[in-house]
Design a protein around this nucleic acid. Structure first.
Lengths: 240, 240
DNA sequence: GACCAAATATGGTCAGACCATACATCGAAC
DNA sequence: GTTCGATGTATGGTCTGACCATATTTGGTC
């Protein structure tokens, strides 16, 4: 029932010391993370090749690959085959993809409910709208998304620009973590959003909400923006 | 992460579609995710063994293992060696670990700033405190953490129970997604929190904040709880 | 029945081979 | 000298098969 139980069963293998022995790929992960922390590796830097890493860390290439797969999943490396400056494992920073997969899979396992996701979205979006109304930024991006939604030819396209509109609000807050979470929330429930649009049958009410939100942010009216967000989400995802 | 649904099991060779051929482990991921969605697999269910999966999906065991590593990273499977009902790859749901690693690594890469993490924490915690004040739940857990902080013998121990206190507030909101995010935020910056306590030199002000927050939630005073959270975070992590 | 040893199923690790890809290099044609 | 194509090479991607480590199951012995 709980999403996060306390004990971590994982794989408990014990060495002579009685403590669980870390798996080889975990050692590799720790070493690479150490390099990032100590040597100040940053986005764009390249890691050694898989074969070289294996020899250097005295593990098999398979273990190196498993570690790289984990890092790729966490969005911090990107692997490219071939030769040249862009080849190999390059450090990146794309928390978004990882967050999206995380949410989608956990939604699939029914351990997170739609309601929890929607409520979280409401929290973030109200917070962001308040900031956006204070700074009055991101208005161009929002206006573009509004126009694109007007021109959309179907639910899929509408939702695509709807995501852009809401992400623009979050990005106006200037906080990359919250906007990454927001984008992941939207991406992971995209299918449900399309269903919601189809169920409503008509996007005029939604667009009216969007325009109210836009106007409030443009006019610096934080309170109206916050309440307009609540109205909008309640319309799209009515509480049971 | 890319768990793209990719049809087309026909030609193994490069298709003329222009898109790169998905890697073998990505196909495995897609298949397993499909089983979860379609067959209603859920927490506690077991996946076939690695060797059996490899034969079933016509890939090597290495590719199966890479896919399982990704799923483990995302917190949806847990692998256990040996024999018996608990052995093998079992579906779980622990987004916490993945979120923690995600944040820690991205902080290390300096693509997320401490300020963004703190602001996000402020957002979640104020939201949760408001809910907690309305429902007046989780008070026992908070009281236990308060007592444990009083009895703490060093910064490490203090921070450990400090995390428990703040997580208890978030859990009182009843939203597992926000509390998972909250726990990940705290865990990923634990080292910085210890530094902050050392810098303050004294935990009495922090404990006074905690008690003000606790009292406000107990008394159902949402507004006071929200502002007390803001005061507390500003004290622990002063804006530059 | 209790207990200990062997069988077995499962993940963990390794070594080595070969394939696929994309840049690097170099030589021939112009 | 420049251009262009063939070849070289470094890199990730995949597969095979072996062996190790661990934990349950099985079955024999007392």
């Amino acid at each position: 029932m709980t999403v996060d139980d306390r004990p971590e069963p994982g794989t408990v293998r014990r060495g002579a010391s009685g403590r669980p022995r870390p798996r080889a790929f975990e050692e590799v992960l720790a070493r690479i993370e150490g390099w990032i922390a100590a040597d100040g590796l940053t986005v764009g830097d390249r890691l050694p090749g898989e074969r070289q890493l294996a020899e250097q860390l005295q593990v098999s290439r398979s273990s190196v690959r498993e570690a790289l797969r984990v890092l790729e999943t966490l969005g911090v490396v990107s692997s490219q085959a071939g030769r040249g400056p862009d080849a190999g494992a390059v450090l990146t920073s794309r928390p978004g993809g990882a967050l999206t997969g995380l949410l989608r899979l956990n939604l699939g396992l029914a351990t997170l409910s739609m309601r929890e996701v929607i409520d979280t979205r409401l929290m973030i979006e109200q917070w962001a709208a308040e900031h956006a109304a204070r700074s009055r930024t991101g208005l161009d991006e929002m206006a573009r998304a509004l126009a694109a939604m007007d021109a959309a030819s179907g639910p899929e396209e509408f939702v695509e620009h709807d995501i852009a509109f809401h992400v623009a609000i979050t990005e106006a807050s200037g906080n990359r973590l919250t906007s990454a979470i927001m984008r992941a929330l939207r991406d992971s429930v995209q299918r449900f959003a399309i269903d919601a649009v189809v169920r409503l049958g008509d996007t005029r009410d939604l667009q009216a909400d969007h325009r109210r939100i836009y106007a409030a942010i443009r006019d610096g009216d934080a309170a109206t923006a916050v309440s307009a967000i609540a109205v909008h989400l309640a319309r799209a995802y009515p509480p049971d």
